[in-house]
Amino acid sequence: MCLAIPGQVVEVVDEQNRLATVEVAGVRRTVNIGLLDVDGTSAGAGDWVLIHVGFALSKIDEAEAHATLKLLAEMGAEYEQELEELKASAIE
């Protein structure tokens, strides 16, 4: 649960609850983007975000996202485990 995984926002699906579909390593899941609503800005389609336990924690640029994904992939078992848990997630 300590990992933060980069994903790209596909679309905001629930404005009120601040939920968005995010693509993470080829998997589409729903995450909360409410923590990125700061100073009148928020995350939207196309943005790369770091996701931790179903919440987008910060916006990152694309190069950072790819570097982090590569690093995570090299981690092996823990990353696989985290992805499995993410796949089982069905936030609504």
Partner: peptide, 30 residues
């Protein structure tokens, strides 16, 4: 096992007849 506390909340809404407890751990990140 849940990936997110929001998954625990979803389970609670799906099982209104049960008590759903979430074990919240972690630093300020979580």
């Amino acid at each position: 096992v849940v990936y997110s506390p929001l998954d625990a909340l979803r389970i609670a809404k799906q099982h209104p007849e049960r008590q759903v407890v979430f074990f919240a751990i972690g630093f300020e990140t979580t």
